[in-house]
């Protein structure tokens, strides 16, 4: 067993697609609690106490999103109180809380997604879909750092020539514009030269091969198959109507039949997968360290 992020990007991307897909599709409270717990614990497991402040912003977003729905939607039979002749209902509030929980859990899944799926991994995925697109993106990514370095060089040269004083705002702006202008001209010409050089070396003649350090081994297959299986089981359960929830006119959940339990269990295991992997690897690491 490896760390979750060390698996092949194809398996990891499929995992994130299934787990967020189900969370966005079903407004079922049990699934949402599972999704919320899973996304939060994965994020905390990977980051610990770092990013402490940002969680407050997400909590605030959760509160705002929960309260928006009862203010605009007045469906539902249980009236809590009346503001300006419009009733605030418990059902609308419940819907708001569920929707807010969904949004927050998806946001946390994507925070982990952004951390795990680095540019290199995403480019590997795009390269499988379209080599030309992956080339454009990876060249763009390289140009970002190249241009920043070049802009620094141009600025230093201009400063050394005495053309650029940073103590005056107007002068600073004029200088920045000049650097920008130099950069654009240089970058466009540099791009054309690069393209010509590529053409001279035979770009576009044969099939493109590209380097990647990812292999697709047995473990990646296992993760892929388990993910697909659990996703299918949850989908079948949802498709049979076992996970349905009605918010209006009153909150009603479908009866908890064995089919529904299969759905909940599948999604629960799906959510637990990365947490389990990270946990096992951490315990292994600790035990190795203690043996030294």
């Amino acid at each position: 067993m490896r760390r979750f992020e060390e698996y092949n990007p194809v398996s990891v991307a499929l995992y994130f697609a299934s787990v967020t897909g189900i969370a966005m599709f079903c407004l079922n409270p049990i699934l949402l609690v599972l999704s919320l717990l899973g996304s939060l614990s994965l994020f905390f497991l990977r980051n610990g106490r770092r990013e402490g402040r940002s969680h407050l912003a997400y909590l605030g977003l959760f509160l705002v999103l929960s309260l928006v729905n009862p203010l605009v939607s007045h469906n539902g039979v249980t009236v809590l109180f009346v503001i300006n002749d419009s009733p605030i209902t418990a059902e609308a509030l419940a819907y708001g809380v569920a929707a807010a929980g969904m949004v927050i859990s998806v946001l946390y899944w994507f925070r982990s997604f952004t951390q795990i799926m680095t540019a290199e991994r995403l480019l590997y995925l795009f390269g499988k879909l379209s080599p030309r697109l992956a080339l454009v993106l990876s060249m763009g990514l390289r140009y970002v750092t190249l241009f920043q370095a070049q802009a620094r060089r141009v600025r230093q040269t201009q400063t050394a020539l005495g053309l650029y004083k940073e103590d005056n705002i107007l002068d600073h702006m004029r200088g920045s514009l000049r650097v920008w202008s130099v950069m654009v001209t240089w970058a466009l010409e540099n791009g054309i030269v690069t393209a010509d050089s590529m053409a001279a070396r035979g770009y576009g003649i044969g099939k493109r091969s590209h380097f990647s350090r990812f292999t697709f081994g047995r473990g990646d297959w296992i993760l892929l198959v388990i993910t697909a299986f659990l996703f299918m089981m949850t989908c079948v359960s949802a498709g049979m109507g076992a996970l349905d929830v009605m918010f209006y006119p009153s909150v009603r959940m479908a009866p908890r039949t064995p089919v529904a339990w299969v759905g909940y269990a599948s999604y629960g295991i799906l959510v637990l997968l990365p947490i389990m992997m990270e946990g096992v690897v951490k315990i292994k690491w600790k035990s190795f360290v203690s043996k030294i």
Partner: peptide, 19 residues
């Protein structure tokens, strides 16, 4: 068959947008 020149120019402009 987009010319490779145009393709590189697209990457250049993307980089400017990202910066």
């Amino acid at each position: 068959a987009v010319g490779s020149r145009r393709m590189v120019l697209v990457s250049v402009m993307i980089a400017f947008c990202v910066i």
